[in-house]
Nucleic acid binder design. Structure first.
Length: 490
RNA sequence: GGCGGCAUAGCCAAGUGGCCAAGGCGACGGUCUGCAAAACCGUUAUGCGGCGGUUCGAAUCCGCCUGCCGCCUCCA
C-alpha cells in the first residue's frame, strides 16, 4: 500500500488511483531556454524514481512531461544568442535529453510542447471566457481569480493576503491585480499565433492545463513539480482547469524540495548555478544519481562537490558486489549449497525496501536496504561453501529490482551496466560497454598479469609489485583472489 | 508584512511517543593477504539547536527562544 504526501491536503494519503492498476502522471517539465541545472535534475530524478517505483509495484503508468518552448525567457535568451526563439527552444530541448539521459532518467511516454498545442490552448481559453471565468482586455485575456472561490486551496493562501504582498503589480488591462494572463498579445518581432483575440501567445500557466487535460483527462492521478511551482503556477492550473471543466483537475500533488549550494539558494546572481552537464563531466553519473536519491524528495538538499565524492565510493561498492555475485553465479550449483540465512534475509530486505518506498517514496531508507543487500551478498559469496544457484539468482533479482527503481545504473536486459572496465576469471573483459575482447591493450594487460603471476609463483615480489604499481599508475588496479587475478580500471 | 520549511555523530542522512537513535562517507583497531586490494568484523551521538511544558515514557507532541532557508505572479 503506497502512501504519498499530497500538497493539496497537507498530509500523507493512501494512493487510490482513478482507475485500478493505472496511474496517470503529469510533470511540469523544463522551459527550454538554457541547459538544465542541478535543481532541475533533482526534480527529474525524483519523479523518474517515483514513476519507476509505481511500475515496480505493478501499476501501469502513463507519464507525461511537457516542454515549455514558448515563453518570455526564451524570447529574451534568443535575443542574447542571436537565434530565432523556435530554434533556441529546439537547441535546448535536445540538450535536455542529453542531460536527462546522462542521469538515466527515462523518457516520458509523451513529451508535448506548447508550440504544438496552441489550438487546444485557445479552445480552453474560449471555454473559460464562455463560462465567464475569463475576460478579454485589449489583445490580452485574463483569468478572473475572484470568480473561482477555491483559489488558494493548494498553496494555503487567501486573496487578502496576496493583495497585501508587495509584488502584486497591476497591469493596465487587468480588472483586478490578482488576475493572471491566459493569452498575451504579441509585441512586434515576438513569436505569434492567430487567435480570436488577435495575434499573441499563451500565458505561462494555461499550457499545462491544456496539455494535461488533453492527454490525461480530468481528475488524473498525480501532478508533480518543484516546490516553487505551488504558487502561482499550480494554483493557477487548478483554477483554470476546474473552472473550465467543473471537475477536479488532479488527485495528488507532489512537490520536491529545493537544492541549495553550501546553504545558499542556487541563483545566477550569486553565481552558484551548477549545470548538469558540468557535473557529469566531473563525476560518474551513478554517483550523482545516488546523491540525489540519498535525501527524501521533500527535504531540502544541500549541494557541495564533496557530497558527491562520498557517493562515488558507495557506487563502487555496488559495482563490486554485482561483480562478485556474477562470478559466484558462475560457480554455484543448482539445488546444492549452504544457503545459511541468505534466502530469508533477501526476503526481509526486499520487504523493507518496499515498505520504505511505500512510505512516501523514502529513497533514503530504500538506499539503506541496498547496503544491507550488499553486505549479505558479500558475506555469502565469500563463504567456504556457496549458496545454491537458486538463492544467488534470487539475490541477483533483488539487486536488479532495486536498481530498476532507483536508477543508479543504466540497464540492459534488466541488468545494470557499468562504464568502468572490470574483469572476472571467466571472461577477460566483463560486461564492458563497447569494449572489444581482442583489443591490443587487453592482450597486453593479460600478458602482464600472466608474467606477474609467474613472478609471484617464484616469490619474486619485487617484480610482482613493480607490475602492480606500474599498472596502478596507468589506472588499472589488480586484486589477487583465491580464484585468480581480478582487475578493474579506475 | 503574510505563508511555509529546516536544525540528529567529523561530514551526508533516516527516524515524528516506548527494544542499545537506520544507513552511507571518513577515521581508528582487527580478520584475510607474501604485501596489498576487495570483502568481512569491531569502535566512532547516555544524546537528537537552546529553555520550559504535557506524559509512566519524547529526537518524536505543545509553548517560547536562537540560527538557517524558501514562497508571495521569472524560478525545479
Amino acid at each position: 500500500m503506497i502512501e504519498l504526501y499530497n500538497t493539496l491536503t497537507k498530509q500523507k494519503e493512501r494512493l487510490v488511483t482513478r482507475e485500478p492498476g493505472r496511474v496517470a502522471m503529469y510533470v511540469c517539465g523544463p522551459t527550454t531556454y538554457n541547459y538544465i541545472h542541478l535543481g532541475n535534475a533533482r526534480a527529474l530524478v525524483v519523479f523518474d524514481t517515483i514513476r519507476r517505483y509505481l511500475e515496480y509495484s505493478g501499476y501501469k503508468v502513463e507519464f507525461v512531461q511537457n516542454f515549455t518552448d514558448v515563453d518570455d525567457k526564451i524570447i529574451d535568451r534568443a535575443k542574447e544568442e542571436g537565434l530565432d526563439p523556435h530554434d533556441l527552444a529546439r537547441k535546448y530541448t535536445g540538450a535536455y535529453f542529453e542531460d536527462a539521459d546522462g542521469l538515466n532518467v527515462r523518457r516520458a511516454d509523451l513529451h508535448p510542447k506548447v508550440s504544438e498545442h496552441i489550438p487546444e490552448i485557445i479552445a480552453l481559453i474560449e471555454t473559460l471566457i464562455a463560462r465567464e471565468f475569463a475576460y478579454v482586455a485589449g489583445g490580452d485575456v485574463y483569468f478572473s481569480v475572484r470568480r473561482f472561490p477555491q483559489y488558494g486551496k493548494l498553496s494555503g493562501r487567501r486573496l487578502e493576503e496576496m493583495l497585501a504582498g508587495a509584488r502584486v503589480e497591476p497591469e493596465a488591462n487587468k480588472l483586478d491585480p490578482l488576475d493572471f494572463a491566459l493569452w498575451k498579445s504579441a509585441k512586434p518581432g515576438e513569436p505569434t499565433w492567430p487567435s480570436p483575440w488577435g495575434g499573441g501567445r499563451p500565458g505561462w500557466h494555461i499550457e499545462c492545463s491544456a496539455m494535461a487535460l488533453k492527454y490525461l483527462g480530468t481528475n488524473f492521478d498525480i501532478h508533480c513539480g518543484g516546490a516553487d511551482l505551488i504558487f502561482p503556477h499550480h494554483e493557477n492550473e487548478i483554477a483554470q482547469s476546474e473552472a473550465a471543466t467543473g471537475e477536479p483537475f488532479a488527485r495528488y500533488w507532489l512537490h520536491n524540495g529545493f537544492i541549495t549550494v553550501r546553504q545558499e539558494k542556487m541563483s545566477k546572481s550569486i553565481g552558484n548555478v551548477f549545470l548538469v552537464r558540468d557535473i557529469l563531466r566531473l563525476y560518474p553519473a551513478p554517483a550523482v544519481r545516488m546523491f540525489l536519491v540519498g535525501t527524501h524528495y521533500r527535504s531540502p538538499l544541500d549541494y557541495a562537490p564533496e557530497y558527491i565524492e562520498a557517493s562515488v565510493r558507495s557506487v563502487e561498492r555496488l559495482e563490486t558486489c554485482f561483480q562478485l555475485l556474477t562470478e559466484a553465479l558462475g560457480r554455484a550449483l543448482p539445488g546444492r549449497g549452504e544457503d545459511g540465512l541468505l534466502d530469508e534475509r533477501l526476503s526481509v530486505i526486499e520487504s523493507e525496501f518496499k515498505a520504505a518506498m511505500d512510505d512516501d517514496f523514502n529513497t533514503a531508507r530504500a538506499l539503506a536496504c541496498c547496503f544491507d543487500l550488499i553486505r549479505e551478498v558479500n558475506i555469502s559469496v565469500h563463504a567456504a561453501v556457496l549458496p545454491s544457484k537458486e538463492t544467488l539468482e534470487k539475490a541477483m533479482g533483488v539487486f536488479c529490482g532495486f536498481n530498476r527503481v532507483l536508477g543508479i545504473f543504466p540497464e540492459r536486459d534488466g541488468r545494470p551496466v557499468f562504464k568502468r572496465r572490470v574483469s572476472t576469471q571467466t571472461t577477460l573483459a566483463w560486461d564492458i560497454e563497447g569494449a572489444k575482447d581482442d583489443d591490443l591493450a587487453m592482450r597486453l594487460l593479460q600478458l602482464l598479469i600472466t608474467v606477474r603471476q609467474e613472478a609471484r609463483q617464484k616469490k619474486d615480489w619485487t617484480t610482482a609489485d613493480r607490475i602492480r604499481e606500474g599498472l596502478r599508475e596507468l589506472g588499472v588496479v589488480l586484486e589477487d583472489t583465491p580464484e585468480g587475478v581480478r582487475w578493474k580500471r579506475v
